[in-house]
Simulated assay, not measured.
Amino acid sequence: MSDISPVEGFEAYPTRPGFIRHNGGFFLHCERPVIGARITEEHLNPLRIAHGGFLATLADTSFGAVLRRQYDLPVAPVTVNLNIDYLGAVREGDWVEVYVTVHKFGRTVINASCELKVGDRLALRAHGNFMVWTGEIPAVK
């Protein structure tokens, strides 16, 4: 695997076994509602730019991580819908940051948006709705 070193102020995002552990390499900012990732060869499509599915995973994970931390939830909320606009290519070696904004934390639904940037350049914009998980939390295997 390529170097995935974060920039200063970020720490490895802790993951449970499953999809994100195998498809991640994400870093949570120590104080701000931001997730970062270093784009490596494993994240690229045949055009040698970041795969849209990886960027969608990064956006979705960013929502969950930030909402969980910001509202002290036992697990990340469940995604109800996610809308994504891909606005520019992301390349190998780029450090990307996803900035999450919560618009409304309602009784049952959370509405939020995010921007994925490479430096000052906007590469993706997403918004979605999420539900706080109220069911039983399965044990980790």
Rank of each mutant, 00 (worst) to 15 (best):
M1I: 08
S2K: 15
D3H: 14
D3G: 15
S5N: 12
V7Y: 11
V7W: 12
E11I: 08
E11K: 03
P17R: 10
P17N: 09
G18W: 12
G18C: 06
G18P: 04
F19T: 09
I20V: 15
R21I: 09
H22C: 14
N23C: 15
G24F: 13
G25H: 07
F26M: 14
F26I: 07
F27H: 06
F27S: 02
L28R: 14
H29R: 02
C30T: 14
C30F: 06
C30Q: 15
P33H: 06
V34M: 04
V34E: 00
I35E: 00
I35F: 09
R38D: 04
I39K: 01
E41R: 15
E41P: 12
H43C: 07
L44Q: 10
L44W: 12
L47N: 15
L47G: 15
R48G: 06
R48I: 05
R48V: 08
I49A: 10
A50C: 08
H51T: 01
G52W: 08
G52E: 07
G53T: 04
G53D: 06
F54H: 02
F54D: 02
L58D: 00
A59D: 03
T61D: 00
F63N: 09
F63C: 11
G64D: 13
A65D: 06
A65Y: 08
L67I: 09
R68G: 13
R69M: 10
Q70K: 12
D72T: 12
P74K: 05
A76H: 12
A76R: 12
N81V: 01
N81E: 06
L82R: 01
L82K: 05
L82A: 03
L82S: 04
N83S: 15
I84L: 04
L87D: 11
G88H: 10
G88N: 13
G88Y: 11
V90K: 01
V90T: 09
R91S: 15
E92D: 14
E92S: 15
E92I: 14
E92R: 15
W95I: 13
E97H: 04
T101M: 05
V102M: 01
K104H: 06
G106D: 00
G106I: 10
R107N: 12
T108G: 15
T108L: 13
V109G: 00
V109N: 00
I110R: 03
I110Q: 01
I110C: 06
N111Q: 11
L116R: 08
D120K: 11
R121H: 06
L122Q: 01
A123T: 02
A126V: 04
G128I: 07
G128S: 03
F130Q: 03
M131I: 06
M131G: 02
V132T: 14
V132S: 04
W133P: 01
W133E: 02
W133C: 02
W133T: 01
T134V: 05
G135F: 03
E136Y: 01
E136R: 02
E136D: 04
I137Y: 00
I137M: 00
P138Y: 05
P138M: 03
A139E: 08
